[in-house]
Design a protein around this nucleic acid. Structure first.
Length: 1207
RNA sequence: GGGCGGUUAGCUCAGUUGGUUAGAGCGUCUGGUUUACACCCAGAAGGUCGGGGGUUCGAGUCCCUCACCGCCCACCA
């Protein structure tokens, strides 16, 4: 093979295509026991241990992104290593149907392209379209995985909706059903109105949106007494008076408002000053009084002590300007009252509805009774969702507001005391406003309301003709809002609980499509959005809307459709979690590992979660044991295997299903029908003679089938259970932390429930890929990156190596990526602005290029701006470095001089490694075996970054920069050549095997060329030992034996000796560089050192010549020299006429100062307690260090003196 | 509100059970087409390890505390 045949740069694309096909066609990735062509298979009769990994099946929603690239790279590294280590290895690939997500994508596309909804085309047609989508993307995903080099057994691709998975789902469901762990009930669910399905809590995310806070008045209309009779509000009011509460004339009363309210916007004026009563910022119904004259006086809900100079009250809207100050009280509806209040000092009680219930016409009084003299005639609530009032069935107030308020203030005080400085202000403000409620009348008012609630007061529900009770319930927090809260049990999770506690009716006002139903009366048919607008407008017209505030709201959104969630009362299927969750809790290892027990946990019955800190979130989530809602009102998924049967009696069922063990039935909760569950097949409508069976419409939550993934991929529910028996439990599950609970926990519980055994021994949670802003990548943000773009630019190996190199224990992976302009090659920064654009203009050459978002033909026609990043570049460079090292080895094997003595083109090399071998041979073998040991250990503990760094440093800095450079001179020596060639091959061979799990393509390419170039596999046992491999030539590197460290080759003293050479070489090179000695000029130097070092350095002489163009002399230079004091030796470089004496002296002086500093600190250390308390070996080290420094200092001083003398 | 992670060179990050003078890549600077590699080689500059306390003979590493950044869960009338 000549040099011409090996390109200087590795071509990833060609290698990828070639070897992916080769691996695939030769079935290297099938398990050994399945006729795989590999040496291990025929080698021994003993069955190797099994190692299995199931892929976290990517969703068929779309193509793979960087997160998948990471996930699958990390899996493949482990899988390939295990395979090479001789395990019977199986990695099962597959994809997930991802129910909601996929249906959503297809529906969205359907609507965008054809303006059709799923109801327009029907269930069958939609499902067909989703299947088409699935076929397309499954293929794309598999191609991507193959393109990345993933070594899955492609003959075993599973899809969560295929027959095997369907069977698994049926069996699991049936078993749960039989054990009465499945039930159906009316539950409040997160309703996605767009997809028209319930989604689980985990599929909901919260997003801050601009919203409003509306204050709405609910008027008291009547009271229901204990005997059931009703009293009108008039009676009620009278009665209050009767029980001794004096009720002075109120402004509102005298304004003709029937004594009910003094609405918001009321202005209190004094002289020429106008005070406007306004709601406060928190929307708690608090008022402030603004003096037109200047500073506002904070006016809280409750009793007001007006300042002496406030003489008038004006009730009205902002229409009244300060200078139009009128002596009247008017409300926003235009009522007015000219009966001005003249008293100079007054108290006002402003209710929770922000209205003044009473205005004490009397003198300033201390009587509390005056403050509570009147019961409120209306209740004000604040809401962010006014349209839901149509479904209100109560308004709640706390039964014991005083205690609750006190507790709230106490809690706040505690929090304030413990709070960090920056939060204190906000808490203080909050505390003050809550504390005020004790004195400003709020509390009194709430107490009255609580009393009224206990007495059965009814309120008029605005905009309807319904009446709803005022109830007492602890959910109403007196410190929040107005202290009263509307209760909408069918549309709010908390209200639902309140409703259940108080036996309130649950009025559902929502249709499944998000429009209002007949319960909404005149609003029926409107969307929630439209209904809100109309409700607000109507409230305003009716004078019941007191105030609107702008407010940011955390709104629940569906993760799938990205539309707002409506809490909605619906029939739902649930799995009882109590026992299942407990089993999953008990399966996990909770204790932290001791460092020495780093054994794979295959022996343990427990699952180990790595990194260990995730164990807590796993356990916390499971320990809530919240029942699992499993029904989805979708068309894409496993249909729930339940058939409803009305009217039959049990005997008829028994007769119809006699002898059938695969059928089970239960009464439904209402008790008038049967639920029949079938384990194996769909039931016919007439399966029970005389009755019609109707299959459940809903499909199962995607995670229901995903939970069975290890079981369905290993065919646990099939007749032939051999895969299950051989590979279950699987070795490790490698996944993202986002789905630790959703998926991992459920796999554990499903595994335990079905088989009584854990599904995997270890769970490795890998980091997340973030963009340069530290944000997670997502489609909606547009910051996602297609791995193919990186592969196209840098190659799959570079992608894999870079990702593995970045995979550390506790930090997410931040990728800074730029577009590369295809026109001029400029790196164009990816910004938040341009990352969502289909085309971007290069700021330099002003030409456009397309991005991954290009859809339109005119955009697609542009050349692509690929993504570039320094990490991938560095990894690409590494692959190329390895490639060129191999190129050198291949060339050295084939050069003419080495062929002379061979009879064939395939020289058989003999590795004469012995104790007489040169230092560098012993050194590189020692380093190699150390690296093998460390890499193996790191990978087995998922310390990817550490393993990569070890390999990178060894390959680049040790093998290439030292060993290869040193070998060059030996290759020219007839006696040394063969040994050098053998050792080169040996190390390269082990190195590419070590690297193969990470960068499979380039290593396979090298391997194939190497085996072609050299018939050097006919090795002696000793040679094989050196090569850390006992395997004969396999067809593919992917099935070669992974190197095994041999401790005998690891020799720390050799490495130490070699370090002396390295240090000296570096120093010589430094002298050259820092003295600007021309590269072609040869220099000579000598070393002042002890005999042992001298002996050691003797054979290294040629290397100083070849690696630093420096001649090592036996004795010091004759002329002027540069002296570099090193540990244990002095480097003396003969500079003669090259020397710049002043510069040299300056260097030495600097060196002296530096050494003095070190010496001083060491001396101080050695004269302290350190000597007594530190371990002896540490002290010895320090002493030796000090001695070395002193020697160095002396050398420097002597050299300096010599130079001085010469001047 | 509960939990978790982070803060080390201009940038992105390593740093094992505490132990000589804290590392890498990129960037910067100097010099180089030495026959594997310019996707390269040789060398250099650059760090009070977020602040403050403490434990210790010794702290980037352990403890306390403060500050800031990020993530997850819960809640929000």
């Amino acid at each position: 093979m000549s040099e011409n045949e090996i390109p200087k740069q590795y071509d990833p694309a060609a290698a990828q295509e070639k070897w992916a096909k080769f691996w695939d066609e030769n079935h290297f990735f099938r398990p050994q026991t399945a006729n795989r062509k590999c040496p291990q298979n025929s080698a021994g009769s003993r069955l190797p241990s099994a190692f299995c990994v199931v892929i976290p099946p990517p969703n068929v929603t779309g193509a793979l992104h960087m997160g998948h690239a990471l996930n699958n790279t990390l899996q493949d590294i482990i899988v390939r290593m295990k395979r090479m280590q001789g395990f019977d290895t199986l990695w099962i690939p597959g994809v997930d149907h991802a129910g909601i997500a996929t249906q959503a994508v297809v529906e969205r596309k359907l609507f965008e392209e054809e303006k059709l909804t799923r109801h327009d085309i029907g269930r069958e047609a939609l499902v067909q379209r989703i299947w088409n989508w699935k076929e397309k993307y499954q293929q794309r995903i598999i191609d991507q995985l193959k393109g990345m080099g993933c070594s899955c057994d492609w003959s075993r691709i599973r899809f969560t909706l295929d027959d095997v998975c369907a069977k698994a789902v049926r069996h699991f469901f049936f078993k749960l059903f039989e054990q009465k762990l499945i039930y159906r009930g009316k539950r409040l669910v997160n309703w996605d109105t767009h997809l028209q399905t319930a989604v689980s809590d985990d599929e909901v995310f919260h997003e801050t949106v601009a919203g409003n806070f509306w204050y709405i008045k609910y008027e008291v209309c009547r009271r229901q007494t204990a005997d059931g009779s009703e009293q009108t509000i008039d009676n009620f009011d009278k009665e209050t008076a009767d029980v001794g509460l004096s009720r002075p004339q109120s402004v509102a009363e005298s304004s003709g408002l029937d004594g009910r309210s003094l609405p918001l916007g009321q202005k209190i004026t004094e002289g020429r000053n106008v005070c406007a009563v306004q709601p406060d910022a928190e929307g708690s119904g608090v008022n402030s009084v603004q003096h037109s004259g200047g500073t506002g006086q904070e006016l809280q809900q409750g009793i007001y002590q007006l300042s002496a100079h406030c003489t008038r009250v004006e009730v009205g809207t902002g229409n009244s300007t300060p200078d139009k100050c009128q002596s009247e009280v008017s409300d926003r509806n235009g009522y007015s009252n000219s009966n001005a209040i003249k008293q100079r000092s007054r108290q006002y009680a402003v209710g929770s509805d922000n209205t003044a219930d009473t205005i004490d016409g009397g003198q300033q009084t201390e009587e509390k009774s005056a403050a509570v003299c009147c019961l409120p005639s209306a209740v004000i609530i604040a809401t962010t969702r006014p349209e839901t009032l149509l479904g209100d069935t109560a308004v709640a107030v706390h039964p014991d507001p005083e205690t609750a308020l006190r507790k709230a203030t106490d809690d706040l005080k505690k929090r304030l005391a413990a709070a960090p400085e920056k939060e204190k202000n906000a808490l203080q403000t909050e505390l003050e406003s809550v504390e005020k409620r004790f004195t400003d009348g709020t509390l009194d008012r709430l107490k009255k309301l609580a009393e009224m609630a206990k007495n059965g007061v009814m309120l008029k529900l605005p905009l309807t003709n319904r009446e709803i009770p005022l109830i007492a319930d602890v959910w109403a927090k007196p410190e929040k809002g107005t202290g009263c809260v509307k209760i909408t049990p069918a549309h709010d999770p908390n209200d639902y609980e309140v409703g259940k506690r108080n036996h309130l009716p649950m009025v559902n006002i929502l249709n499944k499509d998000g429009t209002l139903n007949e319960n909404a009366g005149q609003y029926a048919g409107l969307t929630m959005k439209k209904a809100r607008e109309k409700v607000v407008a109507d409230l305003e017209t009716a004078g019941l809307l007191l105030k609107t505030e702008e407010r940011e709201i955390e709104l629940a959104h569906s993760d799938r459709s990205k539309t707002p969630i409506e809490p909605f009362l619906n029939d739902q299927w649930f799995v009882k979690m109590e026992s299942l969750a407990q089993a999953a809790i008990d399966s996990v290892e909770t204790a932290e590992l001791s460092s020495e027990s780093g054994q794979p946990s295959a022996v343990s019955h427990l699952i180990r979660i790595i990194p260990h800190r995730y164990t807590k979130s796993y356990l916390d989530w499971l320990s809530e044991k919240r029942d699992w809602p499993i029904g989805r009102q979708l068309w894409w998924g496993h249909r729930i295997p339940i058939w409803h049967c009305e009217g039959a009696d049990e005997a008829e069922l028994q007769k119809a299903f006699a002898g059938r063990k695969d059928i089970s039935w239960q009464r439904d909760e209402e008790g008038n029908g049967w639920r029949i569950c079938s384990q194996t097949e769909d039931l016919k409508a007439d399966a029970v003679p005389g009755y019609q069976l109707i299959q459940e419409e809903d499909v199962l939550d995607t995670w229901f089938s995903s939970a069975l993934w290890p079981l369905s991929t290993l065919k646990y529910f099939e007749d032939d259970k051999s895969d299950y028996e051989r590979y279950y439990p699987t070795g490790v599950l490698i996944t993202n932390r986002d789905i630790l609970t959703l998926w991992v926990a459920r796999m554990v519980l499903a595994g335990q429930f079905n088989t009584g055994t854990k599904p995997f021994s270890e769970v490795y949670i890998h980091p997340k890929i973030l963009d340069k802003y530290g944000e997670g990548m997502s489609k909606s943000k547009g910051n996602g990156v297609d791995p193919l773009s990186v592969i196209n630019k840098f190659g799959a190996d570079a992608l894999r190596f870079a990702l593995a190199y970045l995979t550390t224990e506790n930090q997410d992976i931040r990728l800074t990526l730029d577009f590369e302009c295809p026109h001029c090659g400029t790196a164009v920064e990816q910004t938040k602005k341009n990352r969502i654009l289909p085309r971007v203009q290069c700021p330099k050459c002003k030409q456009d290029f397309r991005t991954q978002w290009a859809e339109k033909p005119e955009d697609k026609a542009l050349p692509e701006g690929v993504m570039v990043g320094e990490r991938f570049e560095a990894a690409r460079n590494f692959c190329n470095k390895l490639w060129n090292a191999a190129r050198f080895v291949l060339m050295s094997l084939s050069d003419e001089s080495s062929k002379q003595n061979k009879d064939t083109d395939n020289p058989v090399l003999f590795l004469n490694f012995s104790e007489y071998s040169p230092l560098e041979d012993k050194w590189i073998l020692s380093r190699l075996h150390t690296v093998i040991r460390n890499v193996t250990d790191n990978l087995e503990h998922y310390h990817y970054a550490e393993a990569m760094r070890t390999l990178y440093d060894f390959a680049w800095d040790e093998f290439c920069s030292f060993y290869v450079e040193m070998v060059k001179s030996r290759l020219n020596d007839d006696f040394e050549r063969e040994k050098a060639q053998s050792m080169l091959c040996c190390v390269l061979w082990s190195l590419i095997k070590l690297l193969h799990p990470v960068i499979p393509f380039v290593t396979e390419e090298i391997y194939q060329r190497l085996t072609e170039a050299a018939g050097w596999f006919e090795l002696t046992d000793a040679e094989r030992e050196c090569m850390a491999s006992k395997t004969d030539k396999p067809e593919s590197l992917s099935v070669a034996a992974f190197p095994v460290a041999n401790e005998e080759f690891i020799k720390p003293e050799i490495e130490k000796q070699f370090a002396v050479f390295q240090e000296l070489l570096r120093a010589v090179r430094d002298v050259r560089a820092s003295r600007n000695i021309p590269p072609k000029t040869e220099i000579s130097f000598s070393v002042k050192c002890d005999a042992a070092t001298s002996k050691l350095l003797e054979p290294m002489k040629p290397y100083f010549a070849s690696m630093a163009r420096a001649k090592m002399q036996d004795s010091g230079g004759k002329g002027l020299t540069a002296t570099v004091p090193l540990a244990g030796m002095d480097l003396i470089v003969d500079l003669s006429d090259l020397i710049d004496v002043p510069a040299e002296m300056a260097k030495l002086e600097k060196e002296l100062a530096k050494l003095d500093g070190f010496i001083k600190s060491k001396e101080a250390k050695l004269s302290s307690d350190f000597v007594q308390k530190a371990p002896p070996n540490v002290v010895d080290n320090e002493r030796k260090g000090l001695a070395d420094l002193q020697t160095q200092r002396q050398s420097a001083a002597e050299a300096l003196a010599k130079l001085k003398a010469a001047v």
